[in-house]
Design a protein around this nucleic acid. Sequence first.
DNA 1: TTGTACGCGTTATCAA
DNA 2: TTGATAACGCGTACAA
Lengths: 325, 325
Amino acid sequence: MKMEDIARLAGVSKASVSRVLNNKPNVSPILKEKVEAVIKEYSYTPNLLAQALNTKATKSIGVLLPAIGLDVFSSITEGISQVLSKEGYELLLADSGGNLDKCKNYLEVFKRKQVDGILYFPTQLPEDHVQYINSLKIPIVLIGQNHEKLEKPAVYFSDKDAAVDIINVLVKTGHKKIAYISMPKEHDIGKMRLEGVKSAVINNGIEAYVVYAEDLSYEAGYQAMSQIISRDVTAVFAAMDRIAIGAMRYIQDQGLTIPDDYSVIGIDDMEISKMLNPRLSTILFDYRLSGKRAGEMILNVIENKEVHSELLEHVFKRRESVKEV
Amino acid sequence: MKMEDIARLAGVSKASVSRVLNNKPNVSPILKEKVEAVIKEYSYTPNLLAQALNTKATKSIGVLLPAIGLDVFSSITEGISQVLSKEGYELLLADSGGNLDKCKNYLEVFKRKQVDGILYFPTQLPEDHVQYINSLKIPIVLIGQNHEKLEKPAVYFSDKDAAVDIINVLVKTGHKKIAYISMPKEHDIGKMRLEGVKSAVINNGIEAYVVYAEDLSYEAGYQAMSQIISRDVTAVFAAMDRIAIGAMRYIQDQGLTIPDDYSVIGIDDMEISKMLNPRLSTILFDYRLSGKRAGEMILNVIENKEVHSELLEHVFKRRESVKEV
DNA sequence: TTGTACGCGTTATCAA
DNA sequence: TTGATAACGCGTACAA
């Protein structure tokens, strides 16, 4: 059933049907009524593809994330969806797996699918990739990180500062012997958090024992903690709550207690973190909010309004997993 | 840059460019080379919208879930994405929030966007909705539940049996005084799990104290447990791990111990469940696998292969949160 | 106010 | 092997 059929059945022209459908002015009530009756009778709905082909607007937004299965990214998606579905946009979701080539590839696909805008959470931002992003003509908003050479708006967190804050908290709480479980080296976010740790450690005149988690799984945190357990530290700082949780599990499996034997602290504030036993101290990155803001920003970019990058605040959450020494 | 431009630049016809692009037979190597050079020079890629408009294939699959933010649903999405992206499909993601009207609405949008297939996790399946689904001409596969009148393939779990299994496990472990925290009444899945509890309880000649969680949040589990704490029970069975985790937190906040004061058990086996303190006993529903299978099935439906509904096995995971009494 | 005819960027059919 | 030309289903000048 296409527009032409409706037109024929209503005894009018295609153009008139189109006008009725889009609430255009200058249509007589009588014609409008006639057309609407036929539309209703056959419950006709226009083909959005054909529509998009000449309006150049698909009412869809491409969303590119590193791993939709992870709590933080599904929170972002939820935030995005909340804002954009209200405005009648659909989400075209793609999972890059943190792979740069896949990212480029999906970005291309988004272009070819004519999405109205792109929301992109990169894991790596080498300069040539930033240039590539700058060269895109489609509206795009980055989520998670910013880059000084980036000419597109971003809603991001200060990973480095968050890490600094945590080290400062630990030091203030009396911890001088600290272990840090970093994310795998290929993640820019991991690099920035590690940078924060390194600089804060120097500023506080202490040292930190650094190990690397193999990936972003709980098991990787568990594994990493097994390398720390023999060292003389009082606090373990993990680059992400996920990793911290794995580390907690390892500590507890050794019959040790948190925070009595080890203080543990993370970053992210996953939904689960406040339900753990003990509750995990961490820094809240409001990912759902970042998704919302990114959604609002892309709408503004699409409407040619002025848009500025936005740094989202992070908040320290003091909970039971850290004790004073 | 469109096909016509490439044709002009290469000094050939539109049709020839199309043939080269789609690797059609009967093109001379010389022409092919010429065209490919121009395509490469201008890094031209065809407009997928225009392509879709006459091939009737968009290479996109609509995915409709109740809440992308929840662990189980993002796992499903991950499974789906894994299978379908390999075959060159994109995911059109929509979040129904468990609302039946929204579901119908998104299903309509998927139709209008001409998706090649739909993957749908319903929360409610009243008979008229089943009829509606049966009447759809687009390939569709349901995830999560099945319905006797459903004429479309589904990959589903046996919620009732899982609940029965848990009650049996608890009874066998010596528990006779059991509390059950049900999901809110509007979820079909909740109904089925509750049914299982009720029948198993009768079969075992015991009774269960039933309370309802307000929603699917950790807090709801916490709240629900507060209604149970005054009752004389030894085991708490929650309809989902999420709710169980909230209940655990409440118990521990009272200074009580799991499993010494209460055994706790759930359903789902979230990724986090095995990392909790104590580790949560539960039944594994392999949601990622359900996404994968659904993805594979929709591909088969699209290719007109025969497809049958599939019941996914569930597996009991005995962990520390349940003790013998 | 209404209708005709063309364009959107492809693929597919049919001649050449 | 190639090239016109007609679809695909819709918006929209422009004319009536």
